[in-house]
Design a protein around this nucleic acid. Structure first.
Lengths: 116, 116
DNA sequence: TGGCTAATTGGCATTATAGCCAACAAGTTA
DNA sequence: TAACTTGTTGGCTATAATGCCAATTAGCCA
């Protein structure tokens, strides 16, 4: 995409395509509701109705969030009766969340010191 | 935790605020250029001009990408002469990228089988 | 069958993001 | 000093994401 008139991009096309796919995974997780869903599914599979009640948004909204996560390959779904259950597929998301949570915690402490 | 009449969220305010901060970190990484930058900074600190040449976008664009990463706490910057050097602060990003890259690889292989 | 629950999809308005250029600030060099 | 390099910020347009409602599909049960 970023090919300017002056200087053409030095990044290989293959590299860019792969990083675009990686960016899509980050994008899929870049929302409160979807991080919440990942945390809930880490405890076990849940249907859309359960997640909808917890999040408190319209069920169409939650369904779309789940669709984003599924598209990215982070969750999978199975039908059971008239319910659809979602499961967490990529567990390493949890490791990363706990890592950045540690960073956030450290930054908050740093802020507190700065205020004092 | 009970649900209120107009479908108010059942998630604790504290939980939501923390997950919003986590989402901001994901959002900061949800772009090709910023993932590229993280990969480059993993090799060592680089100035804006170097990254700009590699990416091939306007320097203002790259500067803004770096600003997003800095705001999220993923990189830091130091001035040296009239150059500004950026460094990677949160190394666990690299672990997560390699994890999702494995997932992408697996999905590509799955696709190939599906086509056959 | 009809009525109910569960979930998805389309449409639409609102908001956020991306990237360019222009302007500016700060450091360097002649 | 002026000219140049480096980087940031503001303004602008184009594109993407969000979340609601409405309509639809699918399964369940009386």
């Amino acid at each position: 995409m970023p090919i300017s008139q002056q200087g053409e991009m030095v990044v290989k096309k293959q590299t860019k395509e792969r990083m675009d796919l990686q960016a899509n995974v980050f994008k899929a997780l870049a929302h409160f509701s979807r991080i919440f869903i990942v945390n809930e599914l880490a405890k076990g599979k849940k249907c859309v109705c359960e997640l909808t009640e917890m999040i408190g948004a319209d069920k169409s909204t939650v369904s779309k969030h789940l669709s984003v996560l599924k598209q990215a390959g982070i969750v999978s779904d199975t039908k059971d009766g008239n319910k659809v259950f979602y499961s967490l597929e990529v567990k390493c998301v949890l490791n990363f969340i706990s890592c950045i949570d540690g960073m956030i915690e450290a930054n908050i402490k740093k802020m507190e010191i700065y205020i004092k």
